[in-house]
């Protein structure tokens, strides 16, 4: 017995090494499964505040650029608003439920962002106390950015579109053919559009937007522009490469969108036993 213990003691460094590596691998696996437990991440209070202080300093230098983007966005919104303003006349129109807002929007700031790995994440300076919930979609004035993964009291962590695990339901604007946009891990400015059948006429230069099918993003948020179309290895689908419209190295101010009817939709899907793959 003593010999066994002595033998084990002489191997203590190796045993400790194996134990630590097993813990590390377990952490990697647990953290990368979409619904897996996220134990420590940058949404905790201490780490969040360090990252926030850092981004406070860095963001100061890009304030001018952020202002310019806001002004141009405001201009677009004012133009859109002038189109829907009702001209007052003697007729009273009853607004029905079709005009109820399905989507709610919130603004926030990115305090930490990565683009160089194959599983990239963003940290956002708002959390549960500001009404952020897991599953909300994220976009900015350029296009789709990602989706909220976990939320703490004051911060939240989101999966970037530059994450091989995220699929965004999308369609080609010119002919309404839908597919899924997924990052292939290569370049931070390009992604792939999957599940577009071969007979579809997709042209280089076509715009790809969100389809609104998975109820995360409203319809019509820009994702990118088709850079190349080729038959691809799969006999059923086209191989489509997009130039992403969002510049992920510069993402700082973002909008979060929540579908207020998602609970109703989800229960409807589960009642009819449909799993929504997009």
């Amino acid at each position: 017995m003593l010999r066994i213990l002595q033998f084990l003691y002489s191997l203590r460094a190796f045993l400790l090494f194996v134990l630590l590596e097993v813990i590390a691998v377990w952490l990697i696996v647990a953290n990368n499964s979409p619904q897996g437990a996220a134990f420590f991440n940058s949404s905790s209070a201490v780490i969040g505040s360090v990252l926030k202080t850092q981004s406070d300093v860095v963001d100061f230098f890009s304030l001018a650029e952020a202002n310019e983007a806001l002004v141009s966005e405001n201009a677009v919104l004012i133009e859109a608003l002038s189109g829907v303003q009702v001209i007052p006349d003697s007729m009273a129109i009853e607004l029905d439920s079709a005009f109820n807002a399905t989507y709610e929007f919130k603004g926030a700031r990115v305090i930490s962002n990565s683009i160089r790995f194959s599983q990239n994440h963003l940290t956002i300076n708002k959390g549960a106390s500001d009404g952020i919930k897991p599953g909300m979609g994220i976009f900015n004035h350029e296009g789709v950015v990602g989706r909220v993964k976990t939320v703490s009291e004051n911060y939240s962590v989101a999966i970037s579109l530059l994450n091989t695990g995220l699929l965004v339901s999308s369609k080609i604007k010119s002919n309404d053919v839908f597919g899924s946009v997924n990052w292939d891990g290569n370049s931070s400015s390009q992604a792939k559009m999957l599940y577009v059948p071969r007979h579809v006429n997709a042209q280089v230069g076509d715009t790809v937007i969100t389809s609104g099918f998975n109820a995360v993003f409203p319809e019509g948020i820009k994702i990118g522009i088709i850079a190349s179309v080729s038959p691809g290895a799969d006999p059923n689908y086209l191989d489509i490469l997009l130039n992403l419209s969002t510049d992920f190295s510069k993402v700082s101010y973002i909008y979060l969108v929540e579908n207020s009817q998602i609970v109703e939709l989800d229960s409807l899907y589960s009642k009819s036993e449909i799993t929504n793959e997009f």
Binding site: R12, A13, L16, A24, V25, W26, A38, F39
Partner: peptide, 27 residues
Amino acid sequence: AVPLLLISFLLGLTIDVFYETLGLHAL
């Protein structure tokens, strides 16, 4: 070897938490 392994693991884990790559640096 034992304290060195422990220090490296904890240091890696700390870096991981900030990098959002939990486990990679530690490993």
